[in-house]
């Protein structure tokens, strides 16, 4: 188990380095090869040539590629100082780059935005797991009934309707029409109820999509598990039906759901771009959207890295949890 963890963490680290290099190449080198001047994109298109030259020197853009990558890596662990002429900008460790467009280091931007996204993703996850799994189990147990068909139609709608549609519809109805909720994001530190009020609609919107998927998977898995021999054995022992379903069948149904949950959460940490922009939440998704629009490459780079890291860690967590749930999985 320990050997497995170490090996997986090592693999994750290697993977991260590879991701950084690939991302670096895409964002810094490809435009250069394509003949686009990155330095001018950092200062703006109307900047005078002197300013562009200064930025180029400051960011080390004229250095060879490997030096640039090395400087970037070094920055993550040791911090980095950008200096050109008299101007000195310090970026403390962990330095994920410096955005000259918004004149701030990337790392604080990420740490600022991450809690919003985390809150959105985790809150929605609780909602969709509870609703999705419950609906899925009920549908499985009442297969073919009106409830089952109704739930599966709603689930189909949830999977197919785009977030803009459900999001904007819920905003229009609940925030602007009925005025039950405020469509304004309030940080948690300021007011808990305000935060809750601002998050409920995004949660529901996001959870609707995922709950639909989870309900469908839960139903299919549950039906399969209920046909297993060991479920018949459990009944043959004289167990009550709710124990058979709630304990024996549920435990096996959980495994594929857990895998999905890990992957989904990992991906969502990188930002629920559509939800965040629909509800104007200042999360990572919103950050990467704005940064792309402003050609603020260091921010894009930073968010991409955080996303990769989240996905890698989520994968690892899923594998470990899988071994905990299923004793047949040997982590060796």
């Amino acid at each position: 188990m320990l050997a497995y963890l170490i090996r997986r963490l090592f693999a994750a680290a290697v993977m991260l380095v590879v991701i950084i290099m690939v991302v670096f190449c895409i964002f810094f080198l490809v435009p250069e090869w394509a003949g686009v001047d990155i330095a001018s994109s950092f200062v703006g298109k109307q900047a005078d040539p002197a300013a562009v030259a200064a930025v180029r020197e400051k960011l080390g853009l004229s250095d060879p590629i490997f030096v640039q990558v090395w400087e970037f890596f070094k920055g993550i662990f040791a911090g980095r100082t950008y200096a050109a002429g008299g101007e000195v900008t310090h970026c403390a460790a962990p330095c994920f780059g410096y955005s000259f467009r918004s004149e701030q280091a990337v790392w604080p931007v990420l740490t600022d935005r991450l809690p919003v996204t985390l809150g959105l993703a985790l809150g929605a996850a609780v909602l969709w797991v509870v609703v999705g799994v419950a609906a899925g189990v009920l549908s499985a147990l009442k297969r073919g009934s009106l409830w089952d068909r109704g739930a599966m139609v709603v689930a189909l709608a949830g999977v197919s309707l785009p977030i803009y549609f459900t999001g904007l519809l819920s905003l229009a109805v609940f925030a602007f029409g009925l005025k039950w909720l405020d469509a304004q994001y309030v940080p948690l530190e300021q007011s808990f109820t305000g935060w809750l009020g601002g998050m409920i609609l995004p949660w529901i919107t996001l959870a609707f999509l995922y709950a639909a998927m989870y309900a469908r998977i839960t139903r299919a898995t549950m039906l399969e598990v209920l046909g297993e021999d060991y479920i018949r054995t459990a009944r043959a022992k004289g167990l009550r039906e709710h124990t058979v379903v709630g304990k024996h069948a549920m435990r096996s149904t959980m495994t594929p759901l857990l895998t999905m949950l890990g992957m989904d959460l990992g991906a969502l940490i990188g930002g629920a771009i559509l939800t965040e922009s629909t509800f104007n939440l200042p999360g990572l998704g919103r950050a990467i959207l704005d940064a792309t629009r402003n050609q603020d490459l260091p921010i894009v780079l930073g968010v991409t890295l955080i996303t990769s890291l989240a996905v890698l860690l989520a994968n690892l967590a899923v594998d470990v949890l899988y071994a905990v749930i299923d004793p047949r999985v040997r982590l060796a």
Binding site: E228, D229, Y230, T233, A234, H248, S252, I325, D326, R328
Partner: peptide, 8 residues
């Protein structure tokens, strides 16, 4: 007996 016993 392999499939008749709960694997977990």
């Amino acid at each position: 007996p392999l499939s008749a016993l709960h694997p977990y």
